[in-house]
Design a protein around this nucleic acid. Sequence first.
DNA 1: GAATGTCGTT
DNA 2: AATGCACGACATTC
Length: 878
Amino acid sequence: MLVAADIAPSSPERPLKKRKPPGARRAELVQGDNAGASAPTTSRDGKEDARARQRDMKSQKHGQQSMVTNGNVDNHDDDDDSHDDDDTLEFEDVALPDPTIQTMERDTDEEEDDDDDEEQIQFEDVDLALMNSFGLGESAEPEEPKVLELDLAAAQSNQRRQIAERRKPINKEEKDRRIVVHKTHLLCLLAHVSRRNRWCNDKTVQKNLRPLLSGKTIKYLNPSTELTQFGRTNSLKQGLEDVMAKFKTRYKITERGMRRALWAEKEEHLKNYQLPEDLETPSERSDFQEMAKSLEGSRDIGAQLFCALLRSAGVEARLVCSLQPLACTSGAPAMGKPPKARGKLSLEEQYARIPKYDSSFESPVAAPSPLSARRRLGHPNAAAFSAPITTGPTISTSSLTPKKIRESPFPIYWVEVLDEAHQKWQPVDPVVTESFWRPQKLEPPANDRENCMTYVVAFEADGTARDVTRRYAKAYNAKTRKMRVESVGERGDRWWRKALRTYSRGHETDMDQIESNELNNLEAREPMPRNVADFKDHPVYALERHLRRNEVLIPGASAAGTVGAGSTGPLEKIYRRRDVRVARTREKWYRMGRVIRENQVPVKFVPKRVKRDDLFGDDDDNDNMGEHGSDVVGNPLYTIEQTELYIAPRVVDGRVPRNRFGNLDIYVPSMVPPGGAYVAEEYGARAAFLLRIDYAPALTGFHFKGRQGTAVLHGVVVPAENEEAVRAVVAGLKDEEAEFAREMRTREVLRAWKRMLMNLRVRQRIWAGVEDDEEKEEGAGDGDEVEAPQRKRRRRVVTTDDEDEDEDEEDEAEGGDDDDDTEGGGFVREAPGRNGGDVESGGQQAMEMDVGGGGDSDEEEGGGFMIDDDYAGGFIVE
DNA sequence: GAATGTCGTT
DNA sequence: AATGCACGACATTC
């Protein structure tokens, strides 16, 4: 029952004063976005949440989930205790949490495929999309908290409007947005786990955990290589058993760990939503160190500490997390409506009625008292947080009976240990299932609302991570995959790979390859689904039922089995996906540069489109070769095997053949007619025309928008022998064009200069003799002070090299103020009382030039003043 | 849960 | 100025 709000709560421990640094605000925004976005139909609450978070940041304990975003924000200051101010993280950093790894990885990136760029964009898309959804796209500049409030308000109204606009629960927009949120959430989670993983290497943590390790145990954990393969594994297991037993008895679960994030479907559901009181506390390394000493905390922390413990004992251990992002599909369960939603019962009060939640700190906590998580340990009520809940007598601070923390019986975090003897990573879950070497035991059932295994990511001590979901998901292809980005949106798989690449080692080790093989084998061995639904979009199998409209089975396809629909139903044959082919119409193939061979019988007929306005049967007997006179037969489809490359009629005697529109279809390069050449230049037609060469504009595709498609013409086809000539002329035309553009730009620049100089001149007159005032002003006022916009504008008008610095400062202070052009009238009006006179050192450099001309701004350049071309040119080139 | 049909968006 | 009617969400019934 985790709501958006849960994942979003902004960093409670790094409150306002740290929000000063410029970058911090962006991160903050993203968090807010996350909250809002996660509650799509509930914008308002989301935002109020964000606000509320800012307010009670101090008093609230925040959940594990809040850490998520935290992990994002204070990613960099992980190993610092010194420069806290390093908060200046921007959202993009989520994608690149670990600079070192990132650089390591850069090499591989460059040699990578070309669509890397595209994927890069996708990352930014997440950012931008979220920003935009709050109407904050461009204005996200470093600003002061005050401005943040304003933006927040703007965002609120913006979202409110958006909500009002679409009442429909799930449309495409909504779907896309969910995908964006899903991705963002994933990145945040990755960053979060990565951070925890680094904590596991912390020396202090490991030192604090030391007492749990006996020499004997350590010995077991590091078996001598003289033992047999089996023996070594056994020793390792023995050691693990020891340390698990020790850990189990000593570690107390006192807080709630991470849960699955759920969407809220109704706005009311987020009203009064509050995080459970017993959510995990630590957000900083020092907290983690403390918990290593006290051995109390959530089960997640337990697993993390256990990982640190193993690492301190010399065991190669991974921190594994089953990420719990907001779903990207619409089928996912939603955060339920709170019972009695209408009533005054706040959620916490509702929780109070549910035994499983500890609600002893509901309202009193609201008292705003800035407490960091660290300090909260000293909070008067803190005792209750450390109250041993799982076993033994609990300290009950009030009449409320102590609540046991009830969570999913399956872990979110666990550990993987490298069984070196067998070169295999094996799961160890010391806290929840208390199992090891049992990967099957860790996947929660599908109906577990608090734990959904979708992405299992394992972080190694060196900070690299791998997606090991397939080791744990029993129906990866049939079920798990459908909940992941891979199967949603386009290029989702690439996105995920790219996201993980951030945490990749630059190279593949042998162990990596072994593991890849293992995972691939697991995937290949996955049993065939037993119900019909799981065959849908299955990467290996396919049912005829689920074939797309344009898909067809190859003739020799043999069934791999059968399924019955439901318990009772006709058996359907199961085919292999690789026996499925796409079939296309003649036209579609033509658009791919292929034509149907002679005497091919269509593999399939698809029903023709039925016109909307025709209620009387379909009388549109269009150009399908329907043999049946009365029955309407659909469009014939053919597979690629039934087609051959299209060869256009060749160019003879310099005559380029063309279609009935006078163009030539060049959908793919192979469609260029023999004897012809394709010149993909805008100027091709003009060039060919100038040369008096026969040419045909190339129809390269269609642009569809709305219902009507329009032809896209790009370039021309000319006789091959004329290609060179045409290209040469095209080059000439381009030069000409460039020259023209340069000229235009020159004129533009000259106009700008002119205007500026005229402004200067006016200024000179107006401000003559008041330099002293001006200077005093400049000297006295600190640059950061907020000034009236008019004044800023006025100052900005006087822009010379000398004042560049000033200007920069102002720009910063100004923030998102969009600087529309500097209308001369603005400042003229603004400084009415002043007399003309000499301008002194303010704009002298500019003033050296003759600023002639009167106030008429419409005058062409050259009229009022002259700037020689060289000067202007230099300016342009700059 | 599964099959079926309709509808809305593109 | 010139062509892509498919697919998922939802409701209903067995």
